[in-house]
């Protein structure tokens, strides 16, 4: 287990390094001299320009600039957002909470619904296959931001059933229960929109893994022992079929976060996505970079966590034993 943890952590280092270096190099992409952006059209003396250039280390070679950038990132200094009057780090961390609040329950529900669809599609062979491929095609093809818009038009603008935007009511509500209900009402539409892609991903993998687990010898053994079909499914088939599902959720976490980011901007959910949209509009680039850095790091962490959970659940992987079947 320790070796697994170590190799995964070693794998994470180059990934995070690439994210940070890409982030640094992108600042060089912005057309024009950064000094022009600072002093603008104002006529300044060359000495003053040289002084700013020196203070900002712009006269240093690229490698030195990179090192001091890396050092700043390691200290958690991602810059300052003048638009939000806040450091970038505290801003993105704060918004990431709202994003995870949207994504977490959506992923959980999508897992359950995806497994359910997989189960149904196996039970009804012919029509089940059609249902499954319809779900998968829909999930992979629908632009989530558009799906969000359609839900708003239908359920908020036309029917007035659900609040269109935000994470909580403007008026504010009192009491824990009322706050929870208010959050839930705001969560339904964005949560559904985020979940659609994952239902597709999970249903497809779960169908294959359920079918695979069902044809294993231990199922025949269990049946021969006279265990009820229900108990066979819950105790023997499902736990074995869950492993690939967990993996696919973990490895698709990047897509999940990206989907959340797109959906948020439609529903004005106060998370990373809305922040990204606003920062792009305001040309608040340090924030955009911060979002990229943070989401990249979260994804890497989730990938490592996935491997560890996988190793924890399946002893074969933990001990490095890969033979058997």
């Amino acid at each position: 287990m320790r070796r697994l943890l170590l190799t995964r952590l070693l794998w994470a280092i180059p990934v995070v390094a690439v994210v940070v270096i890409v982030n640094f190099l992108l600042t060089r992409l912005v057309p024009g001299d950064p000094l022009v952006a600072i002093v603008g059209e104002y006529p300044v003396t060359p000495e003053y320009l040289a002084e700013i250039r020196h203070n900002l280390q712009l006269d240093q070679p690229l490698a030195i600039q990179l090192v001091s950038y890396l050092w700043a990132v390691m200290r958690g200094d991602l810059g300052f957002s003048f638009v939000n009057q806040q450091t970038v780090l505290s801003l993105v961390l704060q918004r990431a909470q709202a994003s995870l609040l949207l994504l977490g329950p959506a992923l959980l529900l999508a897992t359950i619904v995806g497994l359910l669809f997989a189960r149904i599609s196996i039970a009804r062979r012919g029509s089940g296959r059609v249902l499954l491929s319809a779900i998968v095609l829909f999930g992979f093809s629908v632009p989530v931001f558009w799906l969000g818009q359609m839900l708003i038009v239908l359920f908020a603008v036309k029917l007035h059933w659900l609040p269109a935007q935000g994470m909580a009511s403007m008026r504010g509500v009192h009491g824990a229960l009322a706050t929870g209900w208010d959050f839930f009402l705001h969560w339904i539409m964005p949560g559904f929109t985020v979940g659609v892609f994952h239902v597709a991903v999970i249903a497809r993998v779960a169908q294959a893994s359920l079918r695979d687990a069902m044809s294993q010898d231990f199922v025949i053994t269990a049946r021969a022992k006279g265990i009820s079909e229900r108990a066979i499914f819950w105790r023997h088939i499902l736990p074995n079929a869950l492993l690939p599902v967990i993996t696919v959720i973990g490895y698709n976490f990047g897509a999940a976060l990206t989907g959340t980011i797109m959906v948020e901007s439609v529903f004005a959910w106060p998370g990373l996505g809305t922040l990204l949209l606003n920062s792009i509009t305001n040309r608040d680039y340090p924030v955009v970079q911060g979002i990229f850095l943070l989401s990249g790091s979260i994804i890497v962490l989730v990938n490592i966590a996935t491997d560890l959970i996988y190793g924890f659940i399946d002893p074969r992987i933990r001990s490095g034993y890969s033979g058997g079947r």
């Binding site: 794998w11 180059p14 990934v15 690439v18 994210v19 890409v22 982030n23 992108l26 600042t27 992409l29 912005v30 057309p31 490895y251 990047g254 976060l257 990206t258 980011i261 797109m262 990204l276 792009i280 040309r283 680039y285 955009v288 970079q289 979002i291 990229f292 989401s295 990249g296 994804i299 890497v300 990938n303």
Partner: peptide, 24 residues
């Protein structure tokens, strides 16, 4: 293969947005 793995975990949309926002 290690390079493609790195690409697989990157938030592609955020990176694309970042590049296009900065480069024009």
């Amino acid at each position: 293969m290690r390079t493609t793995e790195i690409f697989q975990v990157m938030p592609i949309f955020v990176l694309a947005a970042l590049i296009v926002a900065m480069a024009g």
